[in-house]
Write a protein that binds this DNA or RNA. Structure first.
Lengths: 224, 224
DNA sequence: CTCGCTTGTAACCATTATGTAACCAAATCT
DNA sequence: AGATTTGGTTACATAATGGTTACAAGCGAG
């Protein structure tokens, strides 16, 4: 899948140059002369990266980013800023951007930086998912989603749910769960597993309508 | 990797001579009789250096450079000029050329100057940014900005924040942090990571309103 | 060498998670 | 149906874990 790059730059010739080169590299491009229609484009299209002149006629680049971030958009941005002594001093004020290039720049270096930023932001979606019905566990971020809702589980509850899902289809005996989730053999007596399962049930299905976990009397628990 | 040199010169014989000699030295060359197609060539190919006659039939050399720089290209340029006057040499430098040769010139001297310019322009002065929400780390200058504010972090705190951001989206266990930030395996006990995280939290979010760092009880820490 | 900053450690506090027990409800058996 | 067995529910004590603070050793800049 090609990455789509949005360009905001008030120099039409530079847009042309950038679009030509980026398309040649296999990117899709969207060129804009001002930020006027950019917001709409961001809402309508999926944009992987924004290349933006820092000093646009209508708005300051970092201001635009601030607005964008406020709307909840975290599209990465690379600034293109003029090598103006005034801006050199204020380099620290380039904020919210993922990278920046000072004009004049080498086209090949820009391409490398684009690649780097895309690689970096793509990687953050390196999740490790386990799903059962509408439950979704992300093992790397240890987050749990049920439908669109995110819920919180303790370490024990998370591990318990994880092994239940991992062995879905088979009935898990208490000994098995104690060994796999708690780590110790039979050092626990009584209702330990029982209570844990119930606390888990309470969290993933408070109104008892989904019936994720089924009790097999005399044996243990299972998911279907 | 061979450097590519673009030549713009209205004397076809001189182009041929230059190309022959430069190729013999191991450079790749692109010859042009006018600036007409040079812009396109600069977009398509990586060019390390431009050799340019200062008085071309279609455009003045320094004017062309000005245009190029405005487009954001910083490819170095060496002027070749038939006129010999100190005044003009200085003017040439002021207008953005990296070096200047007056015809007739010694081929060996040109080669030396080409080498010098290429060596000089290899170094990159661009920064290396890592961002998370409104936090921005500049890895080359090791400065940290949160929004408009610049804050100071110790080496340890900087490295810690850096690895947290680099692995944003996954929970980082204490062992992992000890290995990656501290460098040693398990040579630390107790609250070492803990205290470091809290010192970092205190600096990047003194009034505890931003909640950048989330504690995952029993596992470690994460950004989200 | 000294001063100040950094940072590991320990002691202590606060919070959360969880094992256990007591009790209740439901299923199973005779 | 009543007894018995098994699981569910609740409350609570405490263990586990992380946060906070203070302090001293280490380290580097001057």
């Amino acid at each position: 899948m090609k990455a789509q790059i949005l360009i905001v730059e008030d120099d039409a010739d530079l847009i042309e140059l950038l679009e030509y080169r980026l398309q040649k590299e296999g990117y899709e491009t969207l060129g804009f002369l001002s930020t006027k229609n950019v917001k709409r484009a961001l809402a309508e299209e999926h944009v992987d990266l924004i290349l933006m002149d820092r000093s646009l006629p209508d708005i300051e680049g970092s201001e635009f980013i601030a607005m964008m971030r406020e709307k909840g958009l975290d599209t990465p941005v690379i600034f293109l800023s003029a090598k103006d002594s005034k801006y050199q001093v204020e380099e620290g004020f380039i904020r919210g951007a993922d990278d920046y290039m000072t004009k004049p720049f080498e086209m090949s270096e820009l391409l490398l930086r684009i690649e780097a930023v895309l690689r970096r932001t793509k990687k953050s979606i390196h999740s490790n998912l386990v799903t059962y019905r509408d439950i979704q566990l992300d093992l790397s971020s240890r987050t749990i989603h049920i439908g669109a809702q995110e819920i919180e589980l303790t370490k024990l509850e998370f591990d318990l749910l994880h092994t239940l899902i991992a062995h879905q289809g088979s009935v898990l005996k208490r000994d098995f769960l104690l060994k796999n989730v708690w780590g110790r053999g039979g050092s626990f007596q009584g209702r330990t597993v029982n209570v844990a399962i119930n606390r888990l049930k309470e969290k993933i299905d408070p109104d008892k309508s989904k019936n994720y976990i089924k009790t097999i009397r005399g044996i243990g628990y299972t998911l279907f």
